[in-house]
């Protein structure tokens, strides 16, 4: 058995969820390495490769972005300009104005930012949710089954998923590619050296 969790047991289920929520919210630079709340290997073995994961939608993205739209919208606008310029260069061509290199660079920045928002938007959901179908699990206990899709869940797995969904899915896939391990072996009895050195 692993040693006991140093955090005292919370009084209620809500307190436990809020604690996990706070941990998965914490910026990475506050504590490194960040505590790993759960691993994809703890998912039920009935879960297979072809699963559909819940991914943040437009509403979650809007909620996450908030004031950041100030930075994001110019980048998205540029991306929107780049597509017609590429499709119909004679009609509208900002490349002539700003130079092809800069336009490509700004497009790449826009794509990076959009990818970042998609990855982080899951944190905009404060309530526990099913990582497979996105169903709101508020009011349901820990270690239970999603009433919508019937898959088992634990709050720790949800909190870990919330931290970065894309990274969680990548880790899940990486587990499938692990090399076979040599057979484990048992440790022998411990022989303690006596204080007098004999």
């Amino acid at each position: 058995m692993p040693p006991a969790d140093p955090i005292p047991p919370p009084e209620s289920l809500e307190a436990e969820w809020l604690r996990l929520l706070e941990q998965s919210q914490r910026p990475l630079d506050e504590a490194r390495p960040t505590a790993v709340l759960a691993t994809p290997s703890q998912l039920s073995p009935t879960v297979h490769e072809d699963i559909r994961w819940w991914r943040p939608g437009w509403e979650d993205m809007r909620r996450y972005v908030g004031w950041r739209w100030v930075f994001l919208s110019p980048a998205l606008l540029l991306l929107l300009c780049a597509i017609p310029a590429w499709r119909w260069p004679s009609v509208f061509n900002p490349f002539v104005l700003v130079g092809a290199k800069l336009a490509v660079f700004m497009g790449a920045v826009a794509l990076t930012l959009a990818g970042y928002v998609v990855r982080r938007a899951a944190r905009a959901r404060r309530e526990p949710f099913c990582i497979f179908c996105g169903y709101n699990l508020s009011g349901l206990p820990d270690h239970y089954r999603c009433p919508e899709c019937g898959r088992p869940y634990t709050w720790r797995i949800i909190a870990e998923y919330r931290r970065d969904p894309e990274w969680f899915i990548e880790r899940y896939r990486a587990l499938r590619r692990l090399p076979p391990l040599a057979a484990p072996f048992d440790a022998g009895p411990v022989r303690r050296r006596r204080r007098d050195g004999t």
Binding site: L28, R32, P40, L175, P184
Partner: peptide
């Protein structure tokens, strides 16, 4: 730091997957 964090995450995944507790 991100690279180290991600390598660490994968290490923990690997250990838990094979049934280790430390």
């Amino acid at each position: 730091e991100q690279a180290r964090q991600q390598a660490y995450d994968l290490l923990i995944d690997h250990a838990v997957a094979i049934g280790a507790n430390a």
